[in-house]
């Protein structure tokens, strides 16, 4: 929207007003939808139309939340999960990017490893859970390894594909300017793939959450995934729902952080 000129005509002002009106309406409806959902839920539970033992209710979730935060446990769980996810997310992206660069530079290695990468990508990473636990131990390490494993292969594949789809003639141009391979990488391949790498970041944010929660299901003594599993085992659905809602909020915040990063980079 940066190309709009300063001297707005009345017609343009009217247009802007209308656009703003649309935005306000959309956001209002979105909030209303959410409110309705929770109010309806609360109402149905209060009238015992749905069984609040199974479905919980917003007010029960709220009291779950309060008791968790009063005991200070909430922060412990949230910070554990958050740390695992962020570390998993950053390492998976960094490792994936580094591997893609190496495979781009060393073409024979790319040819040799291609079938293995394809097969590893097809493998459901959760199957590796027991192996990881035995190798890394049943702790945070295993969770982070899970978070990394789940997204690193697809990161390599996506980023490498982006590298390989850079216009051959642009590479020819670089060669006519007598660029070496490293210069082609740094001055052409990487800058041409900025949006591709950010797309990988976006995917990995989601994947890191999946990996972390899965890891916590398997091994942990703390974290939101642990709360959810524990809550399920003792049939405390309010705890499960409360942890799930917090998880949703955190995942959304991290996703938007990546979106902001994207805006900053693309400017």
């Amino acid at each position: 929207m940066k190309k709009i000129r300063k001297e707005n005509s009345a017609e343009h002002a009217a247009f802007l007003r209308k656009e703003r009106g649309k935005t306000v309406f959309t956001v209002a409806m979105q909030i209303l939808l959410l409110l309705t959902f929770f109010l309806l839920w609360e109402f149905l539970a209060a009238r015992e139309i749905i069984d609040s033992f199974i479905f919980s209710s917003p007010s029960k979730m709220w009291s779950s939340f309060l008791s968790l935060s009063e005991s200070g446990e909430l922060w412990r769980h949230v910070s554990a999960t958050l740390a695992e996810t962020v570390i998993g997310f950053l390492s998976a992206t960094a490792i994936g990017l580094a591997l893609a660069v190496i495979l781009w530079i060393i073409e024979p290695l790319r040819r040799i490893l291609e079938p293995y990468i394809v097969v590893l990508n097809a493998l459901p990473k959760i199957a590796l859970g027991p192996i990881i636990i035995i190798w890394v131990g049943a702790g945070k390490g295993a969770i982070i390894v899970m978070a990394i494993l789940i997204s690193v292969i697809i990161t390599v594949i996506n980023i490498l594909n982006g590298f390989l789809s850079v216009d051959k003639d642009k590479i020819l141009l670089m060669r006519t300017l007598s660029a070496n391979k490293m210069q082609v990488l740094c001055k052409l391949i990487l800058p041409a793939n900025v949006s591709n790498i950010i797309a990988a970041l976006k995917v990995n944010v989601g994947m890191a959450w999946v990996g972390t929660i899965m890891g916590e299901y398997l091994v942990s003594k703390e974290g939101l995934g642990y709360l959810i599993v524990y809550g399920g085992q003792v049939f405390n659905l309010s705890l499960v729902m409360c942890a799930t809602v917090i998880l949703t909020l955190l995942a959304a915040v991290m996703y938007f952080a990546v979106l902001i990063l994207e805006k900053l980079v693309k400017r």
Binding site: K170, M174, T176, L177, K187
Partner: peptide
């Protein structure tokens, strides 16, 4: 020897100035 290809292949992420000096940078 300078080589000019069919398409300009200017790099969109560089300003015109930085495109013009790309070869100098590389060399």
């Amino acid at each position: 020897i300078g080589y000019m290809l069919q398409h300009d292949h200017l790099f969109e992420w560089r300003s015109i100035e930085d495109n013009v000096t790309l070869g100098l940078e590389i060399r």
